[in-house]
């Protein structure tokens, strides 16, 4: 039986009908056509599907679309504003924080969650904060540097609406 759901996705209200079993990540990718959010595992380990839901990083493969009814959601497509990369994206670019790029959207979402809570995280805090995101390419060192770069940038020029 289909359920009506309405959620704000990257600032736009999206109304849809979904089966109760539809995972939020499938709704985002198939229903809403936003393929930047990826699926890397079955068991909530890899974090490739991480999005921001009501201000917090969550694994969208472990949320039903019906549970997100009424939620405010940001996916990777919604991070850059007006053609301007977000400082976290800039950091990943400057410090070579990605190789194949498959884990990157989820990784950036977790970095976003972290920097909301902790504006100047240490290396250890960054490593701990991305514990729920697996990257098979980088060995994480450049990701740590990317997030540090972003923290510095955001500290020197606080983002207006974040």
């Amino acid at each position: 039986m289909a359920h009506k759901v309405s959620m704000t996705v990257n600032g736009v209200t999206r109304e849809s009908e979904v089966e109760p079993r539809t995972l939020l990540v499938h709704h985002i990718r198939e229903g809403l056509g936003l393929t930047g959010t990826h699926i890397g595992c079955d068991t909530s380990q890899c974090g490739a599907c991480t999005i921001i839901m009501n201000g917090k990083a969550v694994k969208s493969c472990t949320v039903l679309a019906v549970q997100a009814d009424g939620a405010d959601i940001m996916t990777i497509e919604g991070l850059a504003k007006d053609g301007q990369l977000h400082p976290i994206q800039e950091g990943f670019w400057e410090e070579h924080g990605l190789q194949c790029g498959f884990c990157t959207p989820g990784m950036i979402m977790s970095a976003y969650d972290l920097l909301q809570r902790n504006a100047s995280p240490s290396e250890a805090e960054i490593r701990h904060a991305i514990d729920g995101n697996l990257c098979r390419c980088t060995g994480y060192q450049h990701i740590v540097k990317s997030i540090q770069w972003a923290a510095n940038k955001m500290a020197s020029a606080p983002a207006g609406d974040d």
């Binding site: 909530s44 991480t50 969550v58 472990t62 949320v63 969650d113 904060a129 514990d131 729920g132």
Partner: peptide, 9 residues
């Protein structure tokens, strides 16, 4: 418990 995303939910 788990990781940030797990603790958020």
């Amino acid at each position: 418990v788990g990781d940030v995303q797990v603790r958020n939910r």
